[in-house]
């Protein structure tokens, strides 16, 4: 039987951008309902795939399993729960060996954690987080249907998935080395500490590298997209260096965080080939990934490189479009 893995991150969608910006709170009851929708959506097939769910302390998996349609076999994985990103990585590593598709409910951070372990397994990322450049804002029921047709092999997986890029930062400091990996972007911030993680003040942003760019996106990829949009499937990426908008010859006005539209001064903008590196000197700052501060650095040199090694992401629209055209959704 085909199998869909389901990851619901209880920690997604609740950082300080609810205080400093306009991000919505996605509480765990809301995630529970999205998970229930995914379980309902897989019944688009008369023989729905089995669904395995990552365990959690918030009761999301248990509630979703209890309320699942009778025709769907559901199991909750017997894995330890730490209440951290390690839970997502551990569950996805398990799914890579046991499932055909993984559905991830979270934001860019959760999808990034999933991507660390997903390998060639297709990933369907549904937006229930804060920064949602990579995950799709789609109803859970529709996501469940798309996951089902891909998991059951009813559409050509290669035709409905694309390989997302990543951005890798390697920092060298007087005391050692550090690595940070982002899916859509790696940012350099002048703020000294990781603190509450979210990049909250546009004035702190020094620049970075993106794997995709479009004005519909939030954060550095949105700013870059105002200058030269390119899709996640495009090879390589772009480096953006920022400066005080008051002295910049070019500026863009863009969403740097949910509810925070700001004027950003452009120092330089360069397209990068896959594997090509942009170097940033960081006297005192933080390197972040996908809008979240990750690594504090002092007197560091940071080499940031776009790579072609991200998750295999399912395009929900493509998957169901192809399923419909192949008659998969029609029962005579």
């Amino acid at each position: 039987m085909a199998r869909v893995g389901l990851v619901v991150n209880p920690g997604a969608g609740r950082d300080i951008r609810r205080l400093t910006g306009g991000a919505s709170v996605v509480d765990n009851r809301a995630k529970e309902r999205v998970a229930a929708c995914v379980l309902d959506g897989v019944t688009v097939l008369s023989e729905p795939p089995m669904v395995s769910i990552m365990p959690d302390r918030a009761g999301i998996a248990a509630a979703a399993a209890e309320n699942a349609p009778d025709t769907v076999t559901v199991e909750i994985l017997d894995l330890p729960v730490e209440g951290s990103a390690e839970d997502t990585r551990r569950a996805v590593a398990h799914f890579r060996e046991s499932a055909d598709v993984v559905v991830v409910l979270g934001g860019d951070g959760t999808t990034r954690d999933a991507a660390v372990e997903s390998g060639p397994m297709p990933v369907l990322a549904v937006s229930t987080g804060t920064n949602n450049v990579v995950p799709t804002p789609v109803d859970g029921t529709v996501a469940g249907a798309a996951a089902a047709v891909v998991a059951a092999g009813r559409v050509d997986t290669d035709a409905v998935t694309t390989r997302h890029g990543t951005v890798e930062a390697r920092a060298e400091t007087p005391t050692g080395e550090a690595t940070v990996t982002g899916l859509a972007s790696v940012e350099v911030s002048a703020r000294s500490f990781v603190g509450t993680r979210a990049l909250i003040d546009p004035a702190d942003l020094v620049g970075g590298v993106v794997s995709r760019a479009h004005p519909t996106e939030i954060g550095l990829s949105g700013a870059t997209g105002c200058l030269d949009p390119f899709g996640p499937e495009a090879a390589g990426g772009a480096a953006l260096r920022l400066r005080d908008p008051a002295t910049a010859s070019r500026t863009v006005r863009t969403a740097v965080a949910p509810g925070v539209t700001a004027t950003v001064g452009i120092e330089s903008h360069d397209r990068l080939a896959a594997g090509e590196t942009a170097r940033f000197d960081v006297a005192d700052g933080v390197v972040g990934a996908d809008g979240e501060r990750e690594q504090e650095l002092v007197d560091a040199t940071v080499d940031i490189t776009p790579r072609e090694n991200g998750p295999q992401l399912i395009d929900v629209r493509d998957a169901l479009d192809r399923a419909a055209r192949a008659g998969v959704l029609v029962r005579d």
Partner: peptide
């Protein structure tokens, strides 16, 4: 309402 790492003095102060 926000949740922060209470073991990190910088996170608490920022919030």
């Amino acid at each position: 309402g926000v949740t922060v790492d209470g073991m990190d003095v910088t996170a608490v102060a920022e919030a």
